[in-house]
Amino acid sequence: MSQLPHRNVAVLGATGSIGASALDVIARHPDRLRATVLAAGSKVDALLALCRTHRPLHAVIADPAQFERLRDGLRDAGLATQAHAGEAALETLAAGADCDTVVAAIVGAAGLSSTLAAARAGKRLLLANKESLVLAGELLMRAAQESGAVIVPIDSEHNAIFQCLPDAHAHAGLKRIVLTASGGPFRGRRREELVDVTPEQAIAHPKWSMGPKISVDSATLMNKGLEVIEAHHLFGMPRGRIDVLVHPQSLVHSLVEFVDGSTLAQLGLPDMRTALAVGFGWPQRIASGVAGLDLLQHGRLDFEAPDLEAFPCLRLAFEALQAGGTAPALLNAANEVAVSAFLQRKIAFLSIPALVEATLDALPATAADSLEVLRDADAAARRHVTAAVG
């Protein structure tokens, strides 16, 4: 086996859970992987702590008001790391010569521009930012194709499909792809049992350790709906050939079915480090720190159909994918504002899908032929939900 090439890695969203997992894998391979750029939103103290450990060439804080604290903190720590602030700096570094690999793990639409910059620059892109594909999937995939960028999805489900397909776009004999869903903390509950659930209950995911927004998305199944839209772009699959199965053990991460009756699945413990190690090493395999899967210990694997009445966000995502154009951007933006309102206790849990559906009804989809159009749709949806929340 040939030696894994040395990779200089930009970790965008370094202070989040995926950033922490990425840095854990990087630290296991000091001879082959180096974190050269670390970026965070506003958590300057956490970013400084990471800089002291990993000693990157560059540190970026998205909030310009935190620049002086970052700069002074790096100087006081005796680090040569250069301080930067703002979205333009993030884009420049993601596309620049000091990294060849970019972990795109900034949550929300805020991660879109830096992800696109990395794709246009031909980087190896470990993609954990859902919104880049949901908002601008066609633009992102086109940019990657034109530049020769390699996109390795880091969502466990898409990473599983990536591993099961010899070529992500070679569809000869491919019948359908099946994304698995844990079902979240409310799996098995009827719609009327979800009326009074609290933010604390919604973010208590049974299998994965994630941020509050993604945890709520998992509880509503919107997370899976966004993943359906992502899969459409990543693997060139039409809506009718993408299915979802609820699998509470979260050991089978997704399945790929072929016309000859074969189904391939990727299994593993629910730990993001596996997908990140695939991203860093592919087509080689490198140690991730995750143990192997002992099926005797786990005993059984269960599967069931998703309940679209109790969890209508998944249905809305399928409908947005079918509508195309700006509909997925509207869906995503409306959901972000609704989830934020729920976490702030301004609305009830079941109001999240209701607000998303009302937004899709009020703002018809148009052609998504530029980033400006998509940003306008995103802003319009946010205004609509914000006004509705009051």
Rank of each mutant, 00 (worst) to 15 (best):
H6T: 12
L12A: 09
T15W: 08
G16Q: 05
G16Y: 03
S21D: 12
A27D: 15
H29R: 07
R32D: 14
L33I: 14
T36N: 04
A39C: 10
A40W: 01
S42P: 05
S42W: 08
A49I: 13
H54Q: 06
H54V: 02
P56H: 02
P56T: 03
L57K: 13
A65M: 09
Q66E: 13
R71K: 11
L74T: 00
D76Y: 11
D76E: 13
A77R: 12
G78M: 04
G78W: 04
A80I: 14
A89L: 08
L90N: 09
T92K: 15
A95L: 10
D100H: 04
A105Q: 11
V107S: 08
G108C: 10
A110K: 10
S113G: 12
T115F: 03
A118I: 07
K123V: 02
L126C: 08
K130E: 06
L133I: 08
V134H: 00
G137C: 11
E138L: 12
V150N: 06
P153H: 00
S156V: 02
H158D: 08
A160M: 05
L165M: 10
A170H: 15
A172G: 14
R176F: 00
V178F: 03
L179V: 10
T180F: 00
G183L: 03
G184C: 05
G188M: 04
R191L: 11
R191N: 07
E193G: 01
P199F: 07
A202T: 11
H205Q: 13
I214K: 02
S215M: 01
V216G: 01
T220C: 01
L221Q: 08
A231C: 11
H232Y: 11
H232L: 07
H232P: 03
P238M: 04
I242N: 02
I242K: 01
H247F: 07
D260E: 13
A265H: 11
G268Y: 00
L269G: 02
P270M: 02
P270V: 01
Q284V: 10
R285T: 07
G299R: 15
G299H: 11
F303I: 07
L308K: 10
L308R: 15
A310Y: 04
L314G: 00
L314R: 04
L321T: 06
A323G: 09
G324W: 00
T326W: 00
V339R: 02
A341S: 09
K346T: 03
F349Y: 05
S351V: 09
A365G: 00
T366G: 14
V373Q: 14
A381H: 01
R383A: 14
R383C: 08
V385R: 08
A388I: 05
G390W: 09
